[in-house]
């Protein structure tokens, strides 16, 4: 492999990781934009998403890499996998908001944030006790189609991951730009009290943000499984922290920022793995987090909001 091929290969890998991080980062950003709350439960909603996706694929009789599907059955299985993991995670998000966070809505201080940490542990332990700690073989029904581009290899799973991420991000962008509820979400993020006085039901907006963010985490969890061929109870922490870094890098609260940040973090991860060594990935990524917070705390696309009194 030449240096150019290596670069291309790492770009392909980075974009796939980036697709996953972008979807996950959107959940942090949607909730933060509306409630100024960092939802740490999001880490493990993502993990639960990958478990749900795995169980769905297994329910279709798939196991490991032995079953290869093509055509309509493949599309159908993937579609059901994504829909079920997204709806499942979305409902978990709604449950967390409705029953665990809404009672704390008007409580000042870190109570809500600490609750999300607690919920994260509950999700982790529920999966640990029911499905165990072992690394599971995530079914991958994709045919082993690949294309050689120079010396780099592009596999079908990468194209699929990019395609799904683009569809979901396009859909979300359309939703917040053009729909009534999407506009209400933007208005609430900018000025919750004024939005309320326009007649926006803030509860509905907050719940929608949790549903959408968590559903995207579900999709991201399935992408993780398809990409790494594994599901494990402890995948939430590393992926979640990287996605959170992506959200901060892009400007937390900013939807295009989360997408951009996710792609950048993915590329940085694969690039630094190539150049410096995979063991240094976390050092590089969290080093970037620190640098962003020090030199550009609003992120690449964010803006510092004036302090609300």
């Amino acid at each position: 492999m030449t240096a150019g091929d290596l670069f291309l290969q790492q770009a392909i890998n980075g974009l796939s990781l980036g697709a996953m991080y972008s979807l996950l980062a959107l959940g942090f950003t949607l909730v933060y934009g509306i409630m100024e709350l960092i939802n740490f439960a999001h880490f493990n909603v993502f993990m639960v998403g990958s478990m749900i996706a795995m169980l769905v694929l297994q329910a279709f009789g798939l196991s490991g890499q032995q079953t290869i599907l093509t055509g309509l059955p493949l599309v159908g299985v993937l579609l059901v996998g994504f829909v079920v993991s997204m709806v499942g995670c979305g409902l978990i998000g709604v449950f967390i908001e409705r029953f665990l966070l809404r009672p704390l809505r008007n409580v000042k201080g870190p109570a809500a944030m600490i609750t999300t940490i607690g919920v994260s542990y509950i999700l982790f332990n529920v999966v640990l006790l029911t499905l165990g700690t072992d690394s599971k073989n995530f079914p991958n029904p994709l045919p082993p189609i690949k294309w050689e581009i120079g010396g780099a290899v592009l596999r079908m799973r990468e194209v699929l991951i990019w395609g799904i991420a683009l569809v979901l991000m396009g859909g979300l962008t359309y939703f917040v730009t053009y729909t009534k509820l999407g506009k209400a979400m933007r208005a609430t993020a900018q000025d919750p009290e004024a939005a309320r006085m326009m007649g926006v039901e803030v509860d509905k907006v907050v719940m929608s943000a949790f549903f959408l963010g968590s559903a995207l985490a579900g999709a991201s969890g399935m992408i993780f499984g398809l990409y790494y061929n594994l599901a494990k109870v402890d995948i939430g922490f590393a992926a979640g922290l990287r996605a959170f870094t992506a959200a901060v890098l892009g400007g937390i609260g900013n939807v295009p920022g989360a997408m951009l940040g996710g792609v950048l973090i993915g590329l940085i991860e694969s690039g630094s793995g190539q150049v410096i060594g995979a063991a240094w990935t976390d050092v590089v990524i969290f080093g970037i987090l620190v640098l962003v917070l020090v030199f550009r705390p609003a992120g690449l696309l964010g803006r510092l909001a004036p302090n609300k009194s």
Binding site: K180, A184, R186, Q190, D191, A194, M197, M198, G199, V200
Partner: peptide
């Protein structure tokens, strides 16, 4: 608001990062 009470808020409080048209749309939310 649906029954016909509408506010003009102190310091205007427009949604600064939305267009003028979108602000008017928000007024018609109900």
């Amino acid at each position: 608001v649906r029954r016909g009470i509408a506010p003009v808020l102190e310091a205007r409080r427009l949604f600064a990062r939305m267009s003028v048209f979108e602000n008017l749309e928000m007024g018609a939310y109900t």
